[in-house]
Amino acid sequence: MNTLEIKNLNVSIDGQAILKDFNLTIPKGEVHALMGPNGTGKSTLAKVMAGHEDYTVESGEILLDGVNILGEDPDEIAKAGLFLAFQYPLEIPGVSIANFIRAARQARLPEGEDINAVEYYKELYAKMDALKMDRKFTARSLNEGFSGGEKKRCEILQMSMLNPTCCVMDETDSGLDIDALRIVSEGVNLMRGPERSFLVITHYQRLLDYIVPDVVHVMFDGKIVHSGDAELAKELESKGYDWVQEEFVNAPA
């Protein structure tokens, strides 16, 4: 069974097509990287998957474990098992990390059922320790005044606390120094398993040294133009995106 199937997805904003017959399948347990130059539609794909309402979906399907999530509200998509790690996590003043994640966990419980606070904090602290986050962060306002690395760690913390089946990571490596990149990658690698799939969106190959993908896709002008194994990322890094354009876009099919 595939975790994620995107079929013939066409998306536009203000009349301008951004995703063009986009297709992607990620089997359970696999990590796929999606690479491509800026402005090619990678972040749009991530937001559409998570249910952002600013985009116009012309046609297509996004199946999560066989169920179409396209057109659902963001909270329903999240509860169905998709997690989007944001490129630019928002700052939410006055809402602590602990209360925020707790509300997200609570939303996944049946009506009338409450989470066990003791077990919740035990799990939260253990996962923060793994991400080398100070426990004092639980009381701080979500992402407010955080450094770039702290924000991304906080995204991974949320991802691991919410136990998604499909993780979409949008440029998680942007703004990270090497230490933070390593810590974040370790957090992701700990979550890899036979029941979970990952879509790692990145502009640079660097992240894929730490999170080694099963498949690398190259995206150009709204669709995937080439796919390969982890070596493809290295080839891209050395040859650049112009190579992609000459080799796979301009060349006759």
């Binding site: 309402e53 909270d75 939410i92 994640i101």
Partner: peptide, 21 residues
Amino acid sequence: FYMMARGISKRVAMQLMVFGF
């Protein structure tokens, strides 16, 4: 959108934001 992308309903997200304010 960020809060809803974590599975939190719009109503609860609004409440959290207002109480955060």
